[in-house]
Amino acid sequence: MNFPTINISSEDKPILIASGFILVILLIGTGYTLATQGTMPLLTVNYLLQQLQSGAFLGIAAAGLMLVILHGHIDLSIPWTMTAAAMMATTVGGELALPTGLAVGVCIGLVNGIGVGYLRVPSMIFTLGLDSAMRGLMVAHTGGYAPADTATPFMRFLASGKFMGVPMSVFVWAFVSLVIVFLLKKTTFGKSIYATGNNEAAAYLSGIKTRRVILGAFVVSGVCAALAGVLLAGYSAKAYQGMGNAFLLPSIAAVVLGGTHILGGKGKYIGTLIGVVLLVLLNSVLSIMQMPEAGRQVIYGTVIITMLLVYGRGQKVTS
């Protein structure tokens, strides 16, 4: 009952190469700081923990997105799911802040899942439409009057508090990761995701309720994005328009760099984790090197293309 029957080595290759690349980034960064300041701040525990903390938001959003990409679908509604969850959480405030934010994520996930799974609208366009509808709702929400936008103490604690010297958001990220790994490895839901992503017709014929599986994946993605948004609001102490915009493309890139196939059916969670760390470190080292935004964008794109050229190449059509 080996399922899914995929060659292990081909799955692990991206993860190994990405890990190697993380080391290369750290080495280059350290070389730079050694040459300019004579110190090695990059290899200290503090620095790495700080990177993990700022990577947590991206990591949590990417974790949920991965389940959607495993279907060969995509969730473009992440930016405004994050923003909407954060805004509603701060508006409601108090103890209900976090549940409210997560509920927003569930609702968006349900709508996405119904649109993509049941109505069969391509995910690309449906999630895009819902994203702009959410943006509209939030603009209308903040436009008429000024709702409370300060994060509750609990949100701040989750995002920037520390426990035994380790930032809380890292624990939250670790918890989300464990849940996702459990879902993917130990539940029928997880196995159904891989089956549906590989071949939906075959999965349907073997009795998997594929539409419900798709719905589930979108709900998980919505909840993860919402959680990331609430945390981000806690981190920056308030919710604001467009706070999630910078997270969509990196989270797609992180998932794909980690070896998850963009057409679905293939990928390991550990890869996504490494993809996130890679992107966060790359960004951080570039800013240590005081690279202007222009150069950063070019390097960012080049790195993604190069890494995919090494291990992300598809099969040639030969029949």
């Binding site: 493309l249 070019v298 960012y300 794109g301 293309i305 995919l308 050229l309 040639k316």
Partner: peptide
């Protein structure tokens, strides 16, 4: 390169913005 168009252009798009 046989990279999926959606992810390849995602990356080249960021190169274009950089330029």
């Amino acid at each position: 390169g046989r990279i999926q168009p959606i992810i390849a252009t995602l990356a080249t798009g960021s190169i274009a913005i950089g330029l």
